[in-house]
Amino acid sequence: MQAIGPSPFLFIGAVLFVCGVICMTTKRNGIGILMGVELVLNAANLNFITFSRFTPLGLDGQVFSLFVIVLAAAEAAVALAIALNFYNNHLTIDVDRGDELHG
């Protein structure tokens, strides 16, 4: 029985990344865009952990993914505060409506 090498994990990372990018570009709901960002960060995390397992990167990969998780939580908190502000000003979360600066 063959063990699973790094490639399947990297492929999952690729799927997560592409789904996240698609999510960020197509969603009009501000919180949906935030979810796309989370997916992309998660893809990066998966790659970090994969390389920490299969290459001499060692624990560095895990430390980096921990930092990514923490910073993603911080990013979500700030982005959510911005989304709430947006909702307070526009009474909707549709980001296409936030076009006041459009000349």
Binding site: F9, N45, I49, S52
Partner: peptide, 10 residues
Amino acid sequence: LFLLLGADFV
């Protein structure tokens, strides 16, 4: 998947 990769804390 992280657990399967041996990264239990992460």
